[in-house]
Amino acid sequence: MNNDVMDNEIEAETGRKIQLCTFRLAGRLFGVDILTVKEINTETNFTEIFHAPKQIVGYVNIRGQVHLVLDLRMLLGFTWKDPDKESRVVIFKQNIGESFGALVDKIGDIIEVSEDQIEAYGAQDDAQAAMEDSWKSRNLVVGVCKLEKDLLVVLNAKSFLGTFGQKQ
């Protein structure tokens, strides 16, 4: 797996430890609590749903079950990128939302951090400040975590489905 992510694993510190499933979107590193993740699938054969909000990629069939796939790039404000062989769909558990997953560019490692390593979120990059502010306002971000070589933005999976005003 990625060496840089490996390097980022941090020694356990005080505080409750949580494991994060990390992935890359538009080059940046994001992660969600692993307990929210049901599985990670390589399927990219999506069926578009016309007239659905643009954050929805469409439907995908996983073992006979129809899952809704969100475009996490669009959700966060990045531009569309065609899925390639590194793309993955992160499927979340039922309690996070019914039968849905998120499309990510590249999957990263599972890293373990301790809770107090996650700091409150503040705009990191001026260029993307507006976008990042909207993350905060939509409750998408739990916090950031400074890793050795990267900055990991921890996302709040529960908020994904709520972001375009649909009931869960």
Binding site: N45, I49, F50, H51, A52, I56, N61, V66, K167, Q168
Partner: peptide, 20 residues
């Protein structure tokens, strides 16, 4: 899916024989 059930064009989805 609840997130898209307001779209009036669609009555649902199905999986075809080829998996799509």
């Amino acid at each position: 899916h609840p997130a898209v059930k307001d779209l009036s064009f669609y009555a649902g989805a199905t999986v075809m024989g080829d998996g799509k």
